Computed example of a mutant assay.
Amino acid sequence: MQMYDIFWQFLICAFLIVGAVFCFGGSVGLLRFPDIYCRMQALSKPVTLGIFNLIVAYILFLYYTDLGFSLKGILAIVFLIITVPLGSHMMVKASYRSGIPMWKESMVDELEKWNKKMQ
C-alpha cells in the first residue's frame, strides 16, 4: 500500500465517521427532545451536516476508485442544503399556526412577538 492510498482511505473514513456521528446526534435529539419545535431543530441541522459528509465520502470514494466524478453527488448536496432547512422551517411554522403547544418550560416565543407586531 502506498501513502497515497492510506491518505484517501483515511479521508473517506473520516467523512463517514463524522457523518455518522451527526446523523446519530440528530436521531438522539428526535427521541429525547420534548416538542416538535425542538425536534425539528435537532433533525434539520445535524442530519443535514451528517448526510452532507456521507455524500462527500461517496464522491471521494468514486474518485479514489477511478469510477469518475459524481455530479449527482454534488447536486444531491446542493438540493439537501436548500430543501432540508427550508422544509423543517415550513413544518415548524405550520405546527405553530395549527396551535401545537410549545414545551411548558420554553423560555421565549419569538413567533408570538412577531405575530403581535404584524397585526
Rank of each mutant, 00 (worst) to 15 (best):
M1N: 05
Q2S: 13
D5H: 09
F7Q: 10
W8G: 01
Q9A: 08
F10I: 15
L11H: 11
I12Y: 03
I12C: 02
A14S: 14
A14D: 06
I17H: 01
I17G: 00
V18Q: 07
G19L: 04
A20N: 13
V21H: 01
F22N: 10
F22C: 12
C23K: 12
S27Y: 10
V28R: 07
V28M: 09
L30P: 00
L30H: 00
L31T: 03
L31M: 08
L31E: 01
R32A: 09
P34V: 06
P34R: 10
P34E: 09
P34L: 08
D35V: 01
Y37F: 08
Y37A: 03
R39K: 14
M40Y: 08
A42M: 06
L43F: 03
L43E: 02
S44A: 15
K45I: 09
T48V: 09
T48D: 03
T48L: 05
L49F: 13
G50I: 10
I51P: 03
F52L: 15
F52H: 09
F52G: 13
F52N: 12
N53L: 13
L54R: 02
I55Q: 01
V56D: 04
V56A: 06
V56K: 03
Y58N: 09
Y58L: 08
L60H: 00
F61E: 04
L62D: 03
D66A: 10
L67C: 13
G68T: 11
F69G: 05
L71K: 06
L71Q: 06
I74M: 12
L75P: 00
L75D: 06
A76W: 04
V78D: 08
I81E: 02
I81Q: 04
I81R: 03
I82V: 15
I82Y: 13
T83E: 02
V84E: 01
V84Y: 01
P85W: 02
P85R: 03
H89G: 12
M90W: 06
M90N: 05
M91W: 06
A94R: 11
A94Q: 07
Y96A: 09
Y96M: 07
I100R: 06
I100Y: 11
P101S: 06
K104L: 01
K104I: 04
E105R: 09
E105N: 10
M107P: 01
V108E: 07
D109Q: 05
E110T: 10
E112I: 08
E112F: 12
K113H: 13
K113W: 13
N115K: 10
K117E: 15
K117H: 14
M118I: 15
M118C: 14
M118P: 12
M118L: 15
Q119S: 12
